[in-house]
């Protein structure tokens, strides 16, 4: 099977090949999920080097345990659960720095509109900065929910939190993100308005 043919396979078909130790199948799975796994690790650990190490560990752990994957959930959910647990346990050791934004709530600025007037690159920069100030868990939940489109049920399975807890943390995360964007954009917005 050629690499082009392999790239067209579904996750289930790729995993069947991975179990048979097909080297191209393994690298395709890594290529398919490395962006999200790395971003999720980075959101939790807030450090590029630690995130890279954690993301690599997650893939290695996943491939060593691939025979235990029973196709009872999406492969992405199973992989993100390994990644989330791995990054959270590393974060307990490294204790990522976070900024307290609770005291800066309710600034009267229309943040999304102000951000829309910036280029996509600048917008991503501000959002990244704001995401870094959130708690690891909230940042990871927002990433899973908005970036990867995981359902509340899947996020609950990934993080081992109850569905209502996921909803509360997502709500709190959004609120903090909004508040932090306000703080970061205060000067930019006043110039633009």
């Amino acid at each position: 099977m050629t690499p082009t043919e392999i790239s067209k396979l579904s996750d289930e078909e790729l995993i069947t090949l991975v179990v048979k130790n097909h080297p191209h199948a393994i690298s395709h799975i890594v290529d398919r999920y490395k962006g999200m796994v790395f971003t999720l690790s980075f959101r939790i650990l807030k450090n590029q080097l630690d995130a890279e190490e954690a993301a690599q560990d997650s893939f290695v752990k996943a491939f060593h345990a691939i025979k235990t994957f029973r196709f009872d959930c999406k492969f992405s959910t199973w992989l993100y659960r390994i990644c989330y647990n791995n990054a959270i346990s590393k974060a307990r050791v490294y204790k990522p720095v976070q900024v307290d934004v609770d005291s800066k709530f309710d600034l009267p600025v229309n943040t999304p509109n102000a951000l829309d007037s910036l280029s996509a690159k600048d917008r991503a920069r501000y959002l990244n900065k704001a995401m870094e100030t959130l708690e690891s868990e909230e940042s990871a939940l927002l990433t899973l929910y908005y970036m990867d489109g995981e359902s509340i049920g899947d996020i609950s399975a990934i993080t081992n939190l109850t569905e209502s807890n996921v909803k509360v943390k997502l709500h709190r995360g959004r609120k903090k993100l909004y508040s932090q964007l306000n703080v970061l954009l205060k000067e930019e917005v006043s110039m633009l308005l």
């Binding site: 490395k34 962006g35 999200m36 790395f38 971003t39 980075f42 590029q48 995130a51 890279e52 993301a55 951000l115 996509a120 917008r123 991503a124 959002l127 990244n128 995401m131 927002l142 990433t143 908005y146 970036m147 489109g149 959004r174």
Partner: peptide
């Protein structure tokens, strides 16, 4: 959020 958080995916 969906549109803009997608810009923040970090490439390994």
């Amino acid at each position: 959020l969906t549109k803009n958080l997608n810009f923040t995916q970090i490439a390994p």
